[in-house]
Every structure is written in structure tokens, then in C-alpha cells.
Write a protein that binds this DNA or RNA. Structure first.
Lengths: 236, 236
DNA sequence: GTGTGTACTATGGTCGGACCACAGGAGGGT
DNA sequence: ACCCTCCTGTGGTCCGACCATAGTACACAC
């Protein structure tokens, strides 16, 4: 299925070779790829083409490259989930391939799924999120600081849900609209009151999760997020 | 936010330059990037580094490159949403950065959000999806063909919802687990009966959407997908 | 004047070589 | 036995060369 019958594009050959090695188990997390020069020789392409493919893999978060010699050098499969998603979403939003509004709505859908799944999970444990809410009570936080903590809080919920894909997507979505969110905060005149409301909503959401009330958690997180974006003038 | 203070990595310089140009509106969909040699000269990096960055942008679906001269040559901003997401998810799943189970659950969350949003939308129109269900009644479809149509059906729902981000994600998720889904079909002995059930479920889902019953649509799509994966032995 | 074909030019695609920086390991000196 | 040095392997970068391609300009023929 990874065939493309496009023998042009030498770098694609490299990309497909790596993908197939991954799919067939010849490569896995922690493994080292052959050296660039060796790979080039094996596949009959130039080193530059190999490098272009490796660059793609690196940005996508699949490999980490290290100079020097020894076990930590070379290209190593790491499969860091968030990095690539973040880069992709940021760029797509920047290039207007992903409208801001759709990003927000997608975040909404995922965030609702997260809290619902948490509320339904009898083995849930969200101490990290609780701790975040406590940190956020400090009243001398600038909007930017507050929003950063807010992002961490929401992210910690996703992590607690144990779903790597959703966590990566949420991190990416968040970072892709980060600048807009920060600008949006400037549109809010009564920032202290807003921050207070957000804090209370956070606590209410966590309470609903702890109480196992999935429906309520879903509704709360929906109005929490939709409300903020509307208030900040970011939603149509 | 786009700062990295990492003057090493020449290709990052290029990537950031393009991203900043996009964010500041100096570049937009349809625009042409400067020629590779020119870009290299402007930024004080080698052409190879420029190419590595462009390769990343190309795989992410942001640009399309064309040889020759004239208006259609060079690197052009296209911001094709699905391509990059597909590549990213496929590779991450292949490298085991994204567990299969999390992919399925994410698809579930997005798919539920799609049908719910459709059911709530008074201006919804899902003729494409209806047509797909009619095509799928042909009984002489192989499992692979049936699954391909099934994928199209679900995708057409996402498209009908008008959310590009969710559509791209769903297309990517789907393609990333495509091979596993196909293998899973082999685990199903009573394929004809299963296909029949899936067809009926599809119709029921569309009916619920048309009826504006968001809750029911959500439940139906949930059991539809979760049920199939469980039946195919793909869910833990 | 019109049409046609050829040469030119700008572009990406690829390769190979060269050099650098760096990290680890091997080997020699003490 | 220890430490220092040099060697080797690795990615990171640049450069120059060549090719394929697609427009475009221009000269030539009619």
C-alpha cells in the first residue's frame, strides 16, 4: 500500500523504505537508522535526497538525529508524538489551510471526549490537573501566564485520559492558535473577572469528572471553551 | 512563539522564514515562493538547506513544487489540508508512536462530533452520504471494496460537516489504520451478514441525522464503529 | 503580416565532493 | 593503572555541476 509508482523523487524512495521497514518491524522505537552515506549507497540515491527524507522524518517527530559517534549518534527512531502534529497544525493554520474556527471546533470535540472518557473511567486519576488549578489561583498572573497554565491544565487532562493521539492533537491545535488566543486576551477588558470565572469553571469541570458525571463534564467543558472564545471575539 | 534561538540548523531558518511570512501575510495561498537559489542567497544558507525545508513543507501539504518556468513552476503555497495529516499519522502509527487503540478511539470521538454537529445543523445536506449507502447495497462487493466505500461514506459525512480540520484528521486516521482494518476483515467469518448489518447501521445513522436527533446519531455511530472494531478483533 | 519552430532561460531534481563540528573509542605515553 | 591524544564515524552545511522541463522570445520561412 505504500507503493506510489513514482520513481521520480528520489527522496520518496527513502521515505518509503523507512516506512516499510517500520511496518515490517525491521525498524522500531530506539533503533538506529543506517548512516546517511550508507543509506544513500544502498538505495542508489544521493546523500542530499536521503537528507531531505530524514528531515521530513525529523520534523514529523519520528527520528532524532545526533552528531558525533557512539550509540547516541545518527538517526534514531523516537516517535515523539506531539512534535510533528504541532508543526503540521501550526503551518496549516498559518497557511490558512485550516480555518481558525474549525480548529476551535475540533478542539472542542476532542476536549469533550477527553473529559467524558475521564468521567467514565473508574480508575481515573487527575492529580496533575488538580494541582494546576491550585497554581492558577495566584492573582498576580499576567494574561499570558494564565493562558499558559490554562493550556497545561487542559493538556494534563488529555494526558490523564491516556490517549496519545488526542493528546498530540490537542497540543498541536492549542499551539497553532496560541498567538490568536493571546491576542484575544487583549480584547477582554475585565480580565480579572474573566480569569476568576475560568478558575471556577476549571474546578467545576474537575468536580464533575471526579463525580463520574460524564454528561455534566461534557457540558461544562463545552461552555467553558466556547464561552471563552466567544468572549475573546475569536469565534464567529 | 516561532522563535527557537537555535541558529544551528540552517534549514530551520528557512522554515521559520516561510512560517513568519505566512503569519504576517507576506505569503498566502496561491503565492509563489522565491526560487530556491534566490532564497538560499537571501537567507545566507546553502541551497541544500533550502531544499530540506521545502521538502518538509511539501510533505506537510503546504506547497506544491513544479519544474520548468512560468507561473506554474516553483514552489506554490497550496495548503492542501489532508496530505500532511495523512503522512504524519501513517508514519506515527508505523513507528508505534500512536497506538492503534488510541487511533480508533480518536476516530470515534471525531466521528461522534461530526454526526452530532450534522444533526444539529438545520442547513445540513448529506446527499453524497446517501448516495454512498445506495452504492454499497451491491452484494458482490469484496470486503476491500466495501471497506473503501465505507471509508468514503464516513469521510463524506466529515466533509458535509464543513470542518476541514476534522475532515483531514479523519482521513489521516483512517488511512493510518487502513491496512489493519483490511486484515481485520479477514477475521470476520460471516462477512455477508456483517456487511448487511453495517449497511443498515449506515442508513440508521443518516436517518437520525436527517431527523435532527443528535443524541441518537451519536450513539448509533459509536456502536457502529466500536462494534465493528470489536468484531474484527481490533479493539482491546 | 502571420505562423512556426528553434533556441534560450528559469526553474526544480539530483548527484557528488568537500569541509566542518562533534562525540566516542582506541591506542600510546606516563 | 590512569590519562591524554589522535583517529574514526557521524550528521550539518555548502558548493558546483548536470539534467529535465516548461514557458518565452526571437528569428526565420512563407
Amino acid at each position: 500500500m505504500a507503493e506510489q509508482s513514482a520513481p521520480s523523487r528520489a527522496w520518496r524512495v527513502v521515505l518509503e523504505k523507512v516506512e516499510n521497514d517500520l511496518l515490517d518491524g525491521r525498524l522500531g522505537p530506539g533503533d538506529r537508522l543506517p548512516a546517511e552515506r550508507e543509506l544513500a549507497g544502498n538505495l542508489g540515491v544521493g546523500r542530499s535526497s536521503v537528507r531531505e527524507a530524514l528531515r521530513v522524518l525529523e520534523v514529523m517527530g519520528l527520528i532524532r538525529t545526533g552528531t558525533g559517534s557512539g550509540p547516541s549518534s545518527g538517526a534514531i527512531i523516537v516517535a515523539a508524538p506531539t512534535g510533528g502534529m504541532q508543526a503540521l497544525l501550526r503551518l496549516q493554520v498559518a497557511a490558512q489551510g485550516f480555518p481558525l474556527d474549525d480548529v476551535v471546533r475540533t478542539r472542542l470535540a476532542l476536549e469533550e471526549a477527553v473529559v467524558e472518557s475521564l468521567a467514565r473511567d473508574p480508575n481515573r486519576s487527575i492529580p496533575a490537573a488538580r494541582r494546576m488549578t491550585e497554581v492558577m489561583v495566584a492573582s498576580d498572573l499576567s494574561p499570558a501566564e494564565f493562558l499558559a497554565l490554562d493550556a497545561q491544565l487542559h493538556l494534563s487532562l488529555a494526558e490523564a485520559s491516556g490517549n496519545v493521539v488526542i493528546t498530540a492533537m490537542m497540543a498541536g491545535l492549542r499551539s497553532s492558535i496560541e498567538s490568536y488566543v493571546r491576542e484575544g486576551a487583549d480584547n477582554i477588558d475585565d480580565w480579572d473577572a474573566t480569569a476568576d470565572r475560568l478558575r471556577r469553571e476549571h474546578v467545576a469541570i474537575l468536580d464533575a469528572i471526579d463525580a463520574g458525571d460524564a454528561e455534566k463534564a461534557r457540558e461544562l467543558v463545552h461552555s467553558h471553551i466556547a464561552g471563552y472564545y466567544a468572549h475573546a471575539g475569536l469565534s464567529r
